[in-house]
């Protein structure tokens, strides 16, 4: 992880995307218009990006693709819980509880 000034520059760079995207058209005024095809394609960005971040984290354990690992097991429970109940705390409590149980309790 970068430290000190580099970390702050990294945080500033991430923050700049907040204003660049949210401000894009609000700052431009009504001069710009978003092409409809691009607008439809952009709808898929969050789902594709979130999944691209999460799936490797769940599937890869110790550098290898592994269909049996504690993170994936806990992740599947999180998905099931989030699909079934609307309580926002539950996926975190059960997911973390299960991961800790498997890692600490069972030494997996």
């Amino acid at each position: 992880m970068s430290e000190g000034i580099w970390l702050w520059l990294t945080l500033l760079a991430i923050g700049s995307t907040t204003v660049l995207t949210r401000g894009s058209f609000i700052l431009l005024g009504e001069k710009g218009r978003l092409p409809p095809a691009l607008q439809r394609a952009l709808r898929y960005a969050p789902a594709a990006a979130l999944s691209a971040l999460v799936v490797p984290d769940l599937l890869i354990d110790g550098g290898e693709v592994s269909p049996f690992n504690p993170k994936l097991a806990a992740g599947l429970v999180v998905i099931a819980v989030a699909l079934r109940w609307r309580n926002p705390w539950l996926p975190f409590l059960l997911g973390m509880g299960l991961l800790l149980l498997m890692r600490k309790g069972l030494g997996w």
Binding site: A13, R22, R33, R43
Partner: peptide
């Protein structure tokens, strides 16, 4: 990555 995760805001902004 931050840009892609924030891209939906371009739609909201428009």
């Amino acid at each position: 990555t931050a840009m892609v995760l924030n891209l939906r805001f371009v739609i909201f902004s428009a």
